[in-house]
Simulated scan of single mutants.
Amino acid sequence: MKEVIAIVRINMMNQTKQALTDCGVDAFFAHEAQGRGQGFVNPLLLAGAEQGYEEAAALLGEKGKLYPKRVLTAVVDDSMVKCVVETIINTNQTGKPGDGKVFVLPMSDAIRVRTGEAGLKAIS
């Protein structure tokens, strides 16, 4: 089993949920989050500041600003990882900074609380 964690844009949530369902993943969690990447600067903002727009210059000063995101978490069988990762990437990739990240972690076990089922039975 693997845990797939994806950070995506808020406006991509509906498409991502539908794409994951189409891939065969119906069970996952979504959390509200805030964060930022490695500090990229929007070129339009930079150009606006260079042209003397005060609003653009003020926004450039917000170096530590956090942006709203969504974090999706799904625990899947090893055989599903490639489909899940490719689905998330294909759905969220715009080619612009802020498209998100996908992390894949090993999951040693899962136990369904209601029945006590463990392993793959607990996530299917």
Rank of each mutant, 00 (worst) to 15 (best):
Q15C: 04
V25F: 05
R112K: 14
E86N: 11
V76I: 04
N11C: 07
G116L: 00
P106C: 12
H31T: 13
V71D: 03
E62G: 00
K101C: 08
V71A: 02
S124H: 15
K69W: 01
T21D: 13
S79V: 05
A118Y: 06
N42W: 05
A47W: 04
N92I: 04
T21N: 14
K17L: 07
Q93V: 11
N11P: 04
A30W: 06
K2R: 15
D99M: 06
A57E: 12
Q34M: 12
Q93P: 00
P97Y: 07
D22V: 02
V76K: 02
K69S: 04
R114V: 07
Q93E: 12
G116M: 06
A57W: 00
Q51M: 14
R36Y: 07
C83Q: 09
V113T: 09
E117Y: 00
E86D: 15
L20H: 02
A19N: 12
E117G: 02
G52H: 09
A118P: 03
D78C: 05
V81M: 03
G37D: 10
I5L: 15
L20D: 01
H31C: 09
L105Y: 11
K82P: 00
M80H: 09
A6L: 01
A19C: 09
G119L: 05
V84I: 09
V25C: 11
I123H: 12
K82W: 01
L20M: 10
K101N: 07
M80W: 00
V4G: 00
A30T: 14
H31D: 08
L105N: 07
P68D: 14
R36M: 10
K2N: 14
S124E: 15
